[in-house]
Nucleic acid binder design. Structure first.
Lengths: 190, 190
DNA sequence: GCGATTGCAGAACAAACGTTCTTGAATGGA
DNA sequence: TCCATTCAAGAACGTTTGTTCTGCAATCGC
């Protein structure tokens, strides 16, 4: 998963996997059948660990505006680990998000991949939605805000932050995006 | 450029280029030196044609809120050309944006690529900025809006729309993102 | 009409790709 | 102690990759 995350699907050879993990060439095919199936398993694992952990604060019972702020700040820090250079192996600076990177690299090439990206978007939408409901309950939500539209908005912003993290010159934009987004959502406009 | 756009750098072989364009294998190397240099030239061309044409309405003298609305609507239509399937050759549904796709696929792998992505972001920022200035002049800008922050915000939204166009399940999110963004910028909140 | 030059078509290159087979050592039960 | 099974290391498979070389055809100046 880590290798695919930083180098992409096509940029990661089976040899890379053999060298990088403690894994046997033939064992990959016994366990997964093909490089593509392994990649899909890595996508699965990514969503069940990394994405899950990222949105966890939004899904906790008492979540609300403070959780939203916290998660957005964490996303804004995705761009760190800069310097255009590699870290040990062929890492391309910041890794961003595996699912978003895959969208850029492969688009909707196969239907398993399509399924993964729409699952990803749905997870994000639901998580943001839960926290927005909390914010409304706390009176922290800007008047007249539709929760589900705002959740889609935040989902879009999340995707933007993931890709901007992979682009040099994106740091300032990430910060502006976060502050402006928070301003649009919160009751106080802060 | 078209082939790299829909299939990515690593997903496009020299053979694809030979078949797809009216071009000789050896001629590519005489003219460009390597596949990577050709790709960088394609990135250049993309910015000078596609990006340029996309932001043109924002740079015209009288541009303002209507231009912003028009360009955002055009970006929201990036997701069309759906169906997960190919169009003739190995296209992966919607092509999105070559620069954003490249960020997802290659990150900041080489410094020429880093230079391209930051140039891309700067172009967008300047274009949005110009139109926002126009909107302010027309009195269409929400009170208390900082133009340069808003321009960065719109740049981030642009990136989001490009990647969402490559993700299935992103269509509704794209629409919400556009309407919410317009609401945040315009004086009337519409 | 003729020799020098240009430009393109295809063959050929080594290297790396994803995938599969063969071998040899270690293990477990009787 | 011995055989059957499991597991892993690595050689080898045919393709495809990016890159380069070899000829044939056409063109141009004279």
């Amino acid at each position: 998963m880590q290798l695919f995350w930083s180098q992409g699907f096509r940029g990661t050879s089976v040899q890379d996997l053999v060298d990088g993990c403690r894994v046997q060439r033939y064992g990959i095919y016994q366990s997964f059948g093909s490089k593509e199936k392994l990649f899909l398993a890595a996508l699965d694992r990514y969503q069940e660990t990394v994405v899950r952990r990222m949105v966890a604060p939004l899904l906790r019972p008492g979540s609300g505006l403070p959780s939203i702020r916290r998660v957005l700040d964490a996303l804004a820090r995705l761009g760190e680990g800069e310097g255009e250079g590699d870290e040990g192996r062929g890492g391309a600076g910041a890794k961003g998000c595996l699912v978003c990177n895959t969208a850029g690299e492969l688009g909707r090439e196969s239907s398993p991949i399509s399924r993964q990206t729409s699952r990803y978007l749905q997870t994000l939408r639901e998580a943001w939605s839960a926290a927005l409901e909390g914010a409304r309950r706390d009176g922290d939500l800007r008047a007249g805000t539709d929760v589900s539209t705002a959740a889609e908005h935040l989902t879009g912003v999340t995707v933007a932050l993931c890709i901007l993290a992979r682009m040099s010159g994106g740091e300032g934009i990430m910060r502006s995006l976060v502050t402006q987004t928070l301003r649009g959502v919160s009751a106080t406009g802060e």
